[in-house]
Design a protein around this nucleic acid. Structure first.
Lengths: 144, 144
DNA sequence: TTATCTGCAAAAGGTTTGCAACTGA
DNA sequence: TCAGTTGCAAACCTTTTGCAGATAA
């Protein structure tokens, strides 16, 4: 994981009297490097698979913290709660509805909104579609 | 509730061998006219308050159907699952983070996204902020 | 050194399911 | 008429909480 990102996380944690522990660091790395939507269970199993002796509780607590800091976002897809690791900068998401992969784009594609009776404070834009890999798979193995 | 919307819903239900029952109709009206994010519980209580003898199960089942048809969308806010009633046309949402009120805007404010290795199929854009009423309240009763 | 964190087990609470009676088309 | 719907109660399962031992700063 990027060093400046780790420093940001550390400082955000310390601001809140929290600590950068080994389990937190390892789980965040797994999360950030996965590049796809993750459930708490997914992360738990990935951590186990990498030999990290972690509890589900710790995963939930970390996801709560990251969400609060703004480094994770929650989606409810197909009845499942999924988490995306988020860069600190403003960005949009391209999300593959087939495999759960996502990508961040940092160019803001939102036109200014003109209203007098609503004060916008932030916005979220997500594109849902098919990633390159899944599109290729469809070509070689068409369903039916 | 708008007549053409009701017809659309009816036809969507019939397409799936489903029926427009009295409870469904009443719950949808409450939902659509509320103009704010609703939990299943919220709708259940509103229905009860209006003298509709409905079960929570029916609410959940209806919300599932509406979501599938595209007439509802799910948000996970502050750990609560909230539902928005959605018009059939493409639209964005203005959501008040203070009171849960929302509004649809039908002008698409999203610039075309240029990528070769992702096929976008749809997008969701939500603006979060403060609605007129809440802004007024803040002026007259500043916190602190 | 000590406030914070961890993981287990247990509790909580939202959501789904099975089923017998009911109802829209 | 009868396939689909309803609401209750129970089951399910994800998420949270309490707590004693471990650990970052």
């Amino acid at each position: 994981m990027d060093k400046s990102l780790l420093e940001l996380i550390t400082s955000e944690l310390h601001k809140r009297n929290m600590r950068l522990t080994m389990p937190r660091r390892r789980i965040m790395e797994i999360f950030a490097l996965s590049g796809r939507l993750q459930t708490a269970q997914d992360l738990y199993l990935s951590a186990k698979k990498e030999g990290l002796p972690v509890g589900l509780t710790t995963i939930y607590r970390l996801l709560g913290i990251l969400t609060e800091i703004g480094l994770a976002r929650t989606y409810l897809l197909n009845g499942e709660t999924k988490y995306i690791f988020c860069s600190p900068q403003h960005h949009h998401h391209l999300i593959c509805t087939r495999c759960g992969m996502y990508r961040e784009i940092f160019e803001c594609l939102v036109l200014p909104m003109e209203t007098t009776d609503f004060q916008p404070e932030s916005h979220h834009l997500d594109f849902f579609g098919v990633c390159y890999n899944c599109a290729e798979k469809c070509k070689t193995a068409p369903k039916g």
